[in-house]
Structures are given as structure tokens and as C-alpha cells.
Design a protein around this nucleic acid. Structure first.
Length: 248
DNA sequence: AGCGCCTACCGCCAGC
DNA sequence: AGGCTGGCGGTAGGCG
């Protein structure tokens, strides 16, 4: 077995109390080159004792409970994912994508990971994320000049994120900003803003929030505008995306 | 279902 | 010269 991945979700608590499943997981994890969890899947790894003394992360919603139940684990609630030796843990569901990209990078190299990230229309290094998994991304952005800008955008997707506004934020003229941004990221400002807005909207829809509210809070002028952006980037409508990925 | 208008993008060029 | 900057305007494409 190469990589054992424990997913999280509703059944995780039952799984942690299932002796047969625990035994199976323990047996499978022993020879694995890599053991990983997504979201609350970290609870099962912790129940097996695999995380004792290691740094780990889980879904923010259950961090407090996790810390109480597993004091031997060095829980860090902040990062998108953490690697400690051959054990990897990741935060909420979409962090699993970041985790998978990290596997691709570890096995096949940064260029391959970047290519996959582009194909999936996600940032290889998620803006605002922790610095520790930056290895991959020295490629996506040769300089960290626009990192603060990305964090700023991600935090307020509903704000005025026009090119003049972005240029003002970084203190450059529009023309120079567009040119520098393109050189540094390979994307254009408006396209990047759209991607970040779609990413924010995806997270909200995964939490089962209404489409209308999501559109408004993520900076889309109307539901129709968000719908078009989703079709462009994801090939799916917001309602369909929510239907497929929202928690029950 | 279609379209007018606005914005983003980028080539061009003049200045530093 | 050679590079970088930033204003201007044409075009394409997306928003409403």
C-alpha cells in the first residue's frame, strides 16, 4: 500500500468506535509509505495513536474537541495541511485538494503540481494560507510581491476589486500593476479576482448556504453573474455544485 | 434571448 | 543605448 487516506465526515465518530475498522486501519497504515487524513479523518488517526507527539490539523469546527480528546497530539488549528514525517493531516474538505497537490509535488515535482493546479483552476499555494507549504509555489510566484494582495482579496471578496482598486492597494499605477501582475503570476488581475471569488463561493455552497446570499457575499453583482463564472471555471452551476458537494 | 455599454487588457509611445 | 514606467486608446468580452 502506498498511501492510506482517511476521509472525515459524519461517520467518523462511529468509525472511531468500531474495533474492526480500527484494526483494519492500523494494519493498513503500518506498511503504508504515507498516511493521511482529510477534515475530521484526523480523529481516526489520533484514535490509533498515530498522531501522538506529532503536529496535526483538522477541521476548525472540531479543533477544540480534538485538543481535549487527544492532548498528546500537537494540534495546530491554522494551516491548510501539515506534514509530520510520513503522516499528513489536512483541514476542511477542500483542503484535501491542497493535500493531494502536495502529494503530486512530492512524487512528481513542482512543475507537475502546478500543471494540475492550473487544470483544476485552484491556486497551488492557497492565498492567505500558511507559509510552511510554500515549497511548491516558488514557481507560481517567483516573488511574494502579491501575496498580501491575494490575502486582501480573499478576505473581502465583496469589496471593490476593480483593477484601479487593486492598483491603489499595492501602490502602483494601473498599467504597471497589470504588467507586473501578469509577469509574476501568469494570470491577469480580473481573472485572479474571479477565481478567488469562485473559490470563496464554493466554500459557502459547501456549507449549504443559499445561492443568492453566496453571490452577494462573494462579490458577484447578481446570481446570474456568479452562474456564468461557475460555468466558465468549473463547468457547473452554483445550484448543481451545492447539490453535489454541500454537507447534508 | 439578445444587446448596449462598460471594463479589462495590452500594444504603442513618450518620458525618465 | 536599453530598461522601466505610466498614460492613451482600440478591441474584445462580459455584465446587467
Amino acid at each position: 500500500l502506498d498511501t492510506l487516506i482517511i476521509p472525515g465526515g459524519r461517520g467518523i465518530d462511529a468509525a472511531c468506535g468500531d474495533p474492526a475498522l480500527l484494526a483494519w486501519s492500523r494494519a493498513r497504515s503500518a506498511p503504508a509509505r504515507r498516511v493521511a487524513s482529510v477534515c475530521s479523518g484526523a480523529f481516526l488517526l489520533a484514535a490509533l495513536g498515530l498522531l501522538d507527539g506529532r503536529r496535526a490539523v483538522t477541521h476548525w469546527h472540531r479543533c477544540a474537541e480534538f485538543a481535549r480528546r487527544f492532548p498528546a497530539v500537537r494540534l495546530d488549528p491554522d494551516p491548510i495541511f501539515i506534514q509530520d514525517g510520513h503522516i499528513w493531516t489536512s483541514a476542511g474538505i477542500t483542503a484535501g485538494i491542497d493535500l493531494a497537490l502536495a502529494f503530486v509535488e512530492a512524487d512528481l515535482g513542482a512543475p507537475a503540481a502546478l500543471a494540475v493546479a492550473r487544470q483544476l483552476v485552484v491556486f497551488l499555494k492557497r492565498p492567505g494560507g500558511q507559509a510552511q507549504f510554500s515549497a511548491a509555489l516558488s514557481l507560481q510566484q517567483r516573488d511574494d510581491r502579491f501575496e498580501r494582495l491575494h490575502a486582501w482579496i480573499a478576505e473581502r471578496p465583496a469589496a471593490d476589486l476593480s483593477v484601479p482598486a487593486l492598483a491603489a492597494f499595492v501602490g502602483m499605477s494601473e498599467r504597471s500593476f497589470v504588467r507586473a501582475y501578469r509577469r509574476a503570476t501568469g494570470s491577469t488581475p480580473a481573472k485572479a479576482v474571479e477565481r478567488l471569488r469562485v473559490e470563496a463561493a464554493r466554500r459557502m455552497l459547501e456549507e449549504n448556504r443559499p445561492v443568492k446570499q453566496t453571490a452577494a457575499q462573494c462579490g458577484f453583482g447578481s446570481e446570474e453573474t456568479m452562474r456564468r463564472a461557475f460555468l466558465r471555471l468549473l463547468g457547473s452551476t452554483p445550484a448543481a455544485y451545492r447539490e453535489r458537494f454541500a454537507a447534508a
